[in-house]
Amino acid sequence: MSSDAKTKTFGQKAKQTRQRILVAAAQELASRGGDLEIANVAHTAQVSSGLIYRYFDSRTDLIAATVEDFYDQYDQWVIDINPLPGADWISRERARVERSISFIRKHPLAKVVFLNRQKEPLVAAVESRRLAAHLQLAIENVLLAQERGEIDSNINAYVACPMIMGGIRELLVQLLSDSPQLNKDPNKMLDQTMAFMARAMGL
Rank of each mutant, 00 (worst) to 15 (best):
M1A: 01
S2M: 11
S3M: 06
D4T: 04
A5F: 03
K6A: 00
K6P: 03
T7N: 05
K8S: 02
K8R: 06
T9L: 11
T9N: 00
F10A: 07
G11Q: 06
Q12E: 07
K13R: 10
A14Y: 11
K15D: 01
K15Q: 07
Q16H: 14
T17V: 07
Q19N: 04
Q19K: 14
I21V: 05
I21H: 06
L22I: 02
L22N: 02
V23Y: 00
A24G: 13
A24R: 04
A25I: 00
A26E: 09
Q27S: 13
Q27H: 01
E28M: 12
L29N: 13
A30H: 10
A30N: 12
S31L: 15
S31M: 14
R32V: 05
G33E: 15
G33R: 15
L36V: 08
E37R: 15
E37S: 14
I38E: 11
A39F: 14
V41C: 14
H43S: 13
H43E: 15
T44G: 04
T44D: 13
A45F: 01
Q46C: 03
Q46L: 09
V47P: 10
S48C: 11
S49P: 13
S49N: 15
S49L: 08
G50V: 11
G50Q: 06
G50S: 08
L51K: 01
L51S: 10
Y53G: 00
R54C: 01
R54K: 10
R54A: 05
Y55T: 03
F56M: 08
F56R: 12
D57I: 05
R59N: 08
R59T: 07
D61V: 01
D61M: 00
D61W: 09
L62I: 00
L62A: 01
A64I: 03
A64V: 08
A65S: 14
T66C: 10
T66V: 02
T66P: 06
V67C: 01
V67W: 12
V67S: 09
F70E: 05
F70V: 07
F70C: 02
F70Q: 13
Y74E: 15
D75R: 14
D75C: 07
W77G: 06
V78E: 15
